[in-house]
Design a protein around this nucleic acid. Structure first.
Length: 501
RNA sequence: GGCCCUAUCGUCUAGCGGUCUAGGACGCCGCCCUCUCACGGCGGAAACUGGGGUUCGAGUCCCCAUAGGGCUACCA
């Protein structure tokens, strides 16, 4: 068995899990939790398990399951056990493990550690309301804790559906030893007899989680801090069931820019949305790793392999982080200009299709132009979406001219004439290459007694409609002589039109 | 309300009693490079929440206050 050093304790092979509930898309907080689990597994030669917590029949959907799985795959967070691939400790959907929860619950009842409760949600809500009104903590009062069999039978005969509650000790304390937060102590007296099996027969989160984490032989429970307060309940369950405790590590939460919990109204928060906006998998992973964890050195741009090598829970911070799209965007730009060109081209294709710049089944010419234009322009874009837009003029002729550019470069009375001369020179050029175009342009500028820039800027505007973009001569060489001439003519007409008005 | 966690530049963070006149990154500002825009290079502004302790010495340890977050569901 492989040994792994974690938290200074030598232990058996690491087994960790990501256990999302399929009630929506995978948001960046969940993705980060998944990443940290994955990183611990990969950095220690351990096992990463994916488990779907679909015990909320009201909110769980198959679409969410598919969504989360596809996002994880896209991020490259592959699991060793879980949906689609199975594993030794399956099934990996909690809805398929109900018998296990029932068996264990029965065991707890038999041992006198849990009991049936017949209070209805309405009755409980009324009591809670009452407690709130009188300023008392809204705890379950143990109403059904000592029901006799006759009473149970009577209540059942009334048609009441029972839930199962855990008997929580009224005194003493429960300790959570957390790898990130240290020792956290909770007084049992503030906990109440919480429900472990709902009246519809489904287990609650705190309960199913414990049964499965144990059954799946997990060694480390890495999850968001929102679960820290639930952990004493789970520890109590571990004890009641006679299970050995795993190591807990509660990672800080990721907050929206307004410091509140992430939600839809904060714009893009799901992995899928970031992907649609043109963020690369590598960038999101790199950014997420930096949110709550920090490498020892000063390099922040790091490929996954390096993060895996360096990752440790000891360097995970304790404070909640606000995610900052600006930095993500910067990282994305870095990957855009440093990843293998072919890769960037492939990633840009869907965005070009979306803009209708190339067909759904692009032909050879389209692909070649996409390839060349993307490589020529990628240094200047931060996202794939931006990149696709930035190369759009290579694919279509009828673009508008940038308004400020027109003011600046097309209002000079000599502009049309200069473009005209440039056009003539280009037409006469022996070969239409980057070098020949440049030397011709510079020569023309000299002959006209103007700076090359005075020729270059109007030309760029004429050819692309923009004032920004790649080097003009490279742009022209790629566009080709024919299109250059046509677009120059169009611009000359445009300027003429303008001066008439 | 009760309980729990957290607190360093706008943001992410380094810092694990003296090396901190607090380091890095993003963003911002300026300069350089330059056909524009990016990239790149150089430089700059920018933080230890407040108050008590402990200590020869505190960003670093303790307490209180304050602030933010979480939990307190038949959600996870």
């Amino acid at each position: 068995m492989r040994l792994a050093l974690t938290g200074g304790i030598v232990m058996e092979k690491v087994r960790v899990r990501f256990a999302p509930s399929p009630t929506g898309k995978l948001h960046i907080g969940g993705a980060r939790t998944a990443l940290f689990n994955w990183l611990l597994a990969r950095s220690t030669g351990g096992t990463f398990v994916l488990r779907i917590e679909d015990t909320d029949v009201e909110r769980s959907t198959q679409a969410s399951v598919d969504q989360i799985i596809s996002s994880l795959k896209w991020l490259g967070l592959d699991w060793d056990e879980g949906p689609e691939i199975g594993g030794e400790y399956g099934p990996y959907f909690q809805s398929e493990r109900l018998h296990l929860y029932e068996d264990k619950a029965q065991e707890l009842i038999d041992k006198g550690k849990a009991y049936l409760c017949y209070c209805t949600p309405e009755e409980l809500e009324a009591k809670r309301e009452e407690a709130r009104r009188t300023g008392r903590p809204p705890r379950y009062d143990g109403h059904c804790r000592n029901l006799s069999e006759e009473e149970c039978a009577r209540l059942a005969a009334e048609g009441r559906q029972a839930v199962i509650r855990l008997k929580v000790p009224e005194t003493g304390e429960t300790v959570v030893d957390d790898l990130i937060r240290g020792r956290v102590v909770f007084q049992n007296s503030i906990l109440d007899d919480f429900i472990i099996i709902k009246s519809n027969g489904m287990p609650t989160y705190n309960y199913a989680c414990v049964v499965d984490d144990h059954a799946m032989r997990l060694t480390h429970i890495i999850r968001a801090e929102e679960h820290l307060s639930n952990t004493p309940r789970q520890v109590l369950l571990y004890q009641a069931l006679g299970y050995e405790l795993p190591q807990f590590a509660h990672v800080p939460m990721i907050l929206a820019p307004d410091r509140s919990k992430l939600s839809k109204r904060h714009g893009a928060t799901s992995v899928e949305e970031f992907r649609d906006q043109g963020y690369l998998q590598e960038a999101i992973i790199n950014y997420l790793a930096l949110l709550g964890w920090s490498p020892e050195g000063t390099d922040e741009i790091m490929p996954l392999e390096d993060i895996v090598k360096q990752f440790s829970l000891e360097r995970v911070s304790k404070n909640a982080a606000i995610y900052d799209t600006k930095k993500l965007t910067w990282i994305n730009g870095y990957y855009l200009r440093n990843l293998p060109g072919e890769r960037v081209v492939q990633e840009t294709l869907p965005f070009l299709k979306r803009l209708g710049l190339i067909g759904e089944e692009p032909g050879e010419d389209e692909l070649r132009l996409a390839h060349d234009s993307v490589l020529l322009t990628r240094d200047r874009a931060k996202t794939l979406e931006e990149l696709a837009d930035a190369v759009s003029y290579f694919f279509k002729d009828g673009f508008d001219y940038d308004e400020k550019g027109v003011q600046k470069h097309f209002s000079d009375p000599a502009a049309a004439d200069r473009l005209c001369q440039a056009r003539a020179r280009l037409e006469a050029l022996a070969d239409f290459t980057y070098e020949s175009i440049e030397s011709e342009y510079r020569q023309l500028a000299e002959e006209l007694g103007i700076k090359a820039a005075q020729l270059i800027h109007p030309t760029r505007l004429a050819l692309s409609g923009r004032t920004i973009g790649p080097g003009l001569f490279e742009l022209m060489a790629l566009l080709g002589r024919e299109k250059c001439l046509k677009r120059l003519e169009r611009a000359i007409d445009f300027i003429g039109q303008r001066t008439v008005e």
